[in-house]
Design a protein around this nucleic acid. Structure first.
Length: 156
DNA sequence: GCCAACGTTGGC
DNA sequence: GCCAACGTTGGC
């Protein structure tokens, strides 16, 4: 039984192409408790991830990744020079966690936020809910499959 | 750059 | 534990 997720990243910071190049990487820098809890408590190896580009010209799901390592302490929080530094996070008492994700595929055409909003089958997906800022969101299998389907269709 | 929505912090 | 002030996210 695997779960499905949507994970947001600003492409200027870390894009699907960056992940493709690196093959796999730690999803570090999350400093939101709800998002952390999803990673720490619910994500398993093999879970599928919709890679979403946020805060950019065309917000969109741009590809697929999968979880390749379960949660471990996110020690970017230890580094005072890191923008995600958190003095409350200690080696012996970590607060922040991240999973590792592995590149699976990049869509030929992104499934844009507009396309998602326009598709009635996706009308209750979390990412289009008002004020939905959570950077890691659970996605139902139906929604996941529908977005995959859209990624193989021509965008009109 | 604006701003609505939401999360976090800290005084009380 | 309340809640005002502040910070952040992210679409537009």
């Amino acid at each position: 039984m695997i779960n499905y997720w949507l994970m947001k990243s600003e492409p200027s910071c870390f894009s699907i192409d960056d992940l493709k190049k690196k093959k796999r990487d730690a999803w570090s820098g999350v400093r939101n408790y709800q998002a952390r809890n999803f990673m720490r408590d619910d994500m398993r190896v093999g879970d599928k991830v919709l890679f979403y580009h946020s805060s950019c010209n065309v917000p969109a799901v741009v590809g697929i990744a999968k979880v390749c390592k379960t949660a471990h302490p996110d020690n970017s929080a230890l580094d005072p020079k890191d923008e995600h530094f958190d003095p409350k996070h200690k080696i012996e008492k970590p607060i922040w966690f991240c999973v590792d994700v592995e590149f699976v595929s990049k869509f030929k055409e992104p499934v844009t936020l507009d396309m998602i909003k326009f598709n009635p089958k996706l009308k209750d997906i979390m990412v289009t809910e008002r004020g939905s800022r959570l950077s890691i969101q659970p996605v139902s299998e139906k929604h996941y499959v529908e977005i995959l389907k859209m990624s193989t269709q021509k965008a009109f």
